[in-house]
Design a protein around this nucleic acid. Structure first.
Length: 492
RNA sequence: GGCGCAUUCGUCUAGUGGCCUAGGACACCGCCCUCUCAAGGCGGAGAUCAGGGGUUCGAAUCCCCUAUGCGCUACCA
């Protein structure tokens, strides 16, 4: 039974060496979505065989990122499953057992050529403009001598690649890719510490876990011949391959830890919504049709198809992410939006602001905030002025900037004070405030739009934000008037 | 250096030989709306389909060459 006729099983197999970035997670998303779209199973496997690069917090970061996005795994850490364990480091017997028969008919290389020797060899190859690769010295060693040396020295086990002919990869994204076997390298499959390298690890574990579709980043395509030949040597059925296009940073280079803050948790910390991230990632290398650009996670689960994955790398476009985030904020239902505002206020507002955040205030700003928020981290600065008696601090020049000179600003504040003072406490509502402020046009001989920035600054400490009339109502008569007096005082 | 992959508006993409004088979205610009900022509505600009050769009545779509970009080239994944 070939891989494409069995029930679909896909996996995401990160190595726990740091926080996952959007590139890794996009691979997870596509694997997951493909399984979901085909009624298959999605598993999470942790490839922790590089004991030197392990990062303690990484496993939790990976799982937390997936959970946040709603990418649920059917088998894996914390869930278990028939193919457990899901940590590669706990599967060593499986890897060694698989490698054993290979050592019989294909020579083990008993001693690691000393690192210096390998370095020299590579330097010489580069200088001679020859293809790089292990020179196979130990491959020619007689079996007895190899075994003897293995008994007393540390050693690695390399896989003896077939050097004749070609290895052909059939890939769902790229079609057929042909590799010349004579250029292939005898790669290490078991390291001297007994752990498998990635190459042995994936092949053994994907097989054991009955993975039908190996979906991974394009950086792996050069290694595909190694894996294909391993499957052949082991007599195992390979999965269907799909190499996803890389995601490039703004510098058009492959995303990495050092290239921008593309760690998923940074986006979350800045107030990105999971549905925006999913929607964004889904269209990096894939499309539904010729016109859809907004897609829910449920629609993705239903319609995702590897056949529509494109082959060319995609540049990460932060503008689009922000747009999508704003879109999903505007679509959010009110209760959740209020809760979101509360959460982010609790998190971001100065410690001087009393907790818990007053629900009534949140409810009244919520609609005003909705269409003005692109990232959730924008929320607190916009509403901070509502939570203190005095306006947040601001430079005095800000009062003057939009009207030209201090004298004009003073006049605006004076007239505002008089005008607003005529509105009684009981009448303190948007319509009356608006009327009072519009009435200022006469005495000031200025258009509303011209003088209004002064009042924004006086009330909110910033020249723009949620609407003025509403803000003044929310502040209440006393605070609103007091802030105008304070601003007036600051202008001398 | 070797090998591999890729190349359609600034960006993500639609496109699988005639529906393409190339469609959508973000970004950009303008107008409308408007108490600021947004959001929203309407409109605009933006791609000789990397370049050059073929094949064909006809090519963004098929073939070849070139260029450029990226990836890999570890006892890392």
């Amino acid at each position: 039974m070939t891989a494409d006729s069995r029930p679909v099983r896909t996996r995401y197999a990160p190595s726990p060496t740091g926080d996952p970035h959007v590139g890794n997670i996009r691979s997870a998303l596509f694997s997951w979505a493909y399984a979901r779209a085909n009624g298959g199973t999605f598993l999470l496997r942790i490839e922790d065989t590089d004991r030197n690069r392990l990062v303690e917090t990484s496993l939790e970061a990976i799982m937390e990122s997936l959970r946040w996005l709603g990418i649920d795994w059917d088998e894996g850490p914390e869930i278990g499953g028939p193919a457990a364990p899901h940590f590669q480091s706990q599967r060593l017997p499986l890897h060694q057992k698989a490698a054993a028969p290979l050592i019989g008919k294909r020579p083990a290389h008993p001693r690691p050529p000393r690192p210096e020797r390998l370095d020299q060899m590579r330097a010489a190859q580069a200088a001679a403009k020859q293809p790089p690769g292990y020179d196979g010295t130990c491959r020619r060693l007689p079996r007895e001598e190899a075994d003897a040396r293995a008994g007393r020295e540390p050693f690695v086990v390399r896989f003896a690649m077939n050097k004749e002919g070609q290895t052909v990869l059939t890939d769902m994204v790229r079609g057929q890719v042909v590799f010349e076997n004579k250029l292939q390298d005898d790669f290490v499959m078991l390291k001297s510490d007994g752990y498998p390298t990635y190459h042995l690890g994936v092949v053994v574990d994907d097989t054991e876990m009955e993975i039908t579709h190996a979906i991974r980043g394009d950086e792996w395509i050069s290694s595909a011949p190694k894996h294909i030949q391993l499957y052949e040597a082991l007599g195992w059925e390979p999965p269907v391959w799909a190499h996803l296009p890389l995601i490039l940073g703004p510098d058009h280079k492959k995303l990495s830890k050092r290239c921008g803050d593309t760690a998923l948790h940074d986006f979350r910390a800045n107030g990105c919504l999971p549905e925006a991230m999913i929607n964004f990632l889904a269209f990096l290398g894939w499309s539904l049709d010729d016109h859809t650009s907004i897609l829910s996670i449920d629609e993705l689960k239903q319609h995702f198809d590897l056949a529509r994955v494109v082959a060319n790398p995609a540049v990460f476009d932060i503008d689009r992410l922000n747009f999508l985030n704003g879109h999903y904020i505007r679509e959010m239902e009110d209760a959740r939006w209020c809760q979101t505002i509360t959460d982010w206020c609790e998190r971001d507002l100065p410690v001087s602001v009393k907790r818990p955040i007053v629900p009534a205030v949140v409810e009244s700003v919520a609609p005003l905030l909705k269409e003005r928020t692109a990232k959730l981290a924008d929320i607190a600065p916009m509403v901070e002025f509502l939570f203190s008696y005095d306006a947040p601090e601001f430079p005095v020049e800000m009062l003057v900037e939009r009207v030209g000179d201090a004298a004009t600003a003073v006049r605006v504040l004076d007239v505002a004070l008089t005008s607003l003072d005529t509105v009684a406490e009981a009448d303190w509502a948007v319509a009356n405030i608006e009327a009072a402020i519009r009435d200022m046009e006469g005495p000031l001989e200025m258009k509303l739009r011209k003088f209004v920035p002064v009042l924004y600054v006086a009330e909110m400490g910033r020249p723009q934000g949620i609407p003025l009339f509403d803000s003044i109502v929310l502040l209440g008569r006393e605070r609103a008037l007091q802030r105008i007096r304070t601003a007036r005082l600051r202008l001398g």
